[in-house]
Write a protein that binds this DNA or RNA. Structure first.
Lengths: 347, 347
DNA sequence: TTGAAAGCGGTACCAG
DNA sequence: CTGGTACCGCTTTCAA
């Protein structure tokens, strides 16, 4: 049973293709009798209007392209889930591309897809792109009429819709929580110091120290440039060796946080009794580590849903909407067992 | 700078569209001079042939649809990575859909995409589909001329290309390894007893016991029907309570394996000194658990690459190829710290 | 109530 | 070497 076209149906009933088209679209121009028999037959034969013909005609594909740095990263997988869900609810398909943190792959992929394959993009920049600071592929796309929504790793100077977490605020709150629970020597370990989100978190940390009236100690701040998680323990260990007073760590990734926990454990600290750890990105590791890790949840799935909705609203609205929205998704501190609980005094 | 069409170029140089088309495709029929100026202009204006027009004309989209149960599952994310990579290398795009283990979503999505959106499918069945045992959406797709490659969770009776792991053999080998390292009371915890891969692993386990001349003890076999990992510890605990002699666990998922480790730990066992654990699916948890988990690697990325290659080969070959291939990807036991090492005697 | 024809953006055959 | 035209599958306007 091969796929059937409108032409086949027309031949079957010896009518014109326009009659069939109208009948299937329930046009008032066609008699009920004709409509009925045509629809019935179409259903029986599982007729579906050809996607490419429709897209060509309508000049829109009802498809969005999503470009993310790495699908093995739980946060991005969550965002993807949100995007896919919202897209589907709105009748959109999703073409997925992984940049693998490569600028070139990102550029090439966007060019390939900018041939009418998709109506708009959802993008989180590759690390390389952010470092290279070259965003012309984004602006070009927008100029050519293909809208973009950026999330998480966004480019400040590109004028488009954006969805971000309140990274500054989140980091600020982690310091506050640690300070509230009695920590006084809070280390900050960043694996993403060259990304803007990393910088936001760093300044949030500094602001938190200030607020808590704690001095900034350079020796408590560590930027890891490597991506190999196997090296994390080795790289973080000096933080402990050089700071006998260290009593807590805020890490920008789960993996780094867990490495810190292991080191603390080895060095005889008790978590959370006399050592606390908070990680960013509420992923799968945090829920299974021992003790379970207190984390900052960025609500990846909601970010994805929001980004998709933003894009679809723009695509579906007839009016040319030039305004650029930035939505900030609130983060939450998910308290587990790597931090002490802070009992707020109820009035 | 809006997108440009062949027509615009033709107007610019006052030639016909066929001339432009031929020039851009480097036809021998066109003079070098004309070719050059047209190509140059096209490049300058970033001309790209419209995707939908091409697809309509060629009756192929160079797009494959991948349908997986859950992107938050590390194994599936790995497979996806392999598919995306291989697809791109071969000039294919990937439309990604998540079934969320739902039969209905799987069916609906496949129907939606079977309108010329994609040239072929790569599928791992939803759990519901496997239980329901209704595969008509797959066979229909194949009959209609849209080929399918299934991976991991495949349907035996659907005749199509398949990529699977040697689950039976893998489970068999885990028992052997545990037996070699001195374990004598090996428990088997399955979270997927109603999936065919789960059954394969179970029979592999039984065969392993037989080979090692160990009795099958019902009390050492546990099937977990829930998906909520938070309940795993509670559900697995009886295994320990009812078997004072238990000295090792083989679990069909990382999460279950880690739950087992935690229980063993709580009950005073030393891993791996007097208790061993092996998990299936070499994911991110195994590498960060404490101790690190010995696992069976299914090489998800390779499975993805293989599946994509199989599909693309079929799509790109002109000849109608009806044969069905099944590729078995060898698994590996990745020894980490939750099992003792077995020193093979070197002759 | 139905049908013819143009057009979406290309390719390719055939004519000149 | 260049141009006209049919066609891919569908929608839509206009005419009958």
């Amino acid at each position: 049973m091969k796929k059937i076209t409108i032409k086949d149906i027309a031949a079957k009933f010896d009518v014109s293709i326009s009659t069939v088209s109208k009948a299937l679209n329930d046009s008032y121009e066609i008699s009920d009798k004709t409509k009925e028999k045509i629809k019935k037959y179409a259903k029986k034969k599982k007729y579906k209007p050809n996607f490419n013909a429709l897209s060509l005609k309508n000049r829109r594909t009802k498809t969005i392209g999503i470009m993310i740095p790495n699908m093995l990263n739980y946060f991005f997988a969550q965002v993807f889930k949100g995007v896919e869900k919202t897209a589907n609810l709105n009748g959109y398909k999703v073409i997925t591309c992984i940049s693998n943190e490569s600028y070139q792959k990102e550029v090439e992929t966007m060019e390939t897809l900018s041939n009418g394959s998709i109506d708009g993009f959802i993008v989180s920049m590759a690390e390389e792109t952010e470092i290279k600071n070259d965003f012309s592929h984004f602006t070009t796309s927008i100029e050519q009429g293909t809208p973009i929504v950026m999330f998480d790793r966004v480019a400040k100077n590109v004028s488009c819709d954006k969805v971000i977490a309140d990274d500054f605020q989140a980091a600020f709150k982690t310091v506050k929580h640690l300070s509230n629970t009695g920590c006084t020597n809070i280390a900050f370990v960043s694996t993403i110091s060259n990304l803007s989100v990393g910088k936001e978190r760093y300044t949030g940390y500094l602001k938190g120290l200030e607020q808590a009236e704690m001095p900034i100690k350079e020796s408590l701040i560590l930027n890891i440039q490597e991506n190999n998680y196997k090296r994390f323990e080795a790289l973080i260990t000096p933080l402990f060796e050089n700071n006998s007073e260290i009593d807590s760590v805020i890490a920008t990734s789960e993996q780094a946080a867990i490495a810190a926990m292991k080191i603390a454990h080895k060095r005889g600290y008790k978590i959370p009794e006399n050592f606390s750890v908070i990680g960013f990105s509420n992923g799968i590791l945090s829920r299974h580590s021992n003790p379970k890790l207190t984390t900052v949840s960025q609500h990846g799935e909601i970010m994805g849903e929001t980004a998709a909705q933003l894009l679809i609203d723009k695509l579906d609205s007839k009016i040319e909407n030039q305004s650029s929205n930035t939505k900030v998704i609130q983060t939450d501190l998910v308290e587990r067992n790597s931090t002490k609980t802070f009992l707020k005094l109820t009035k």
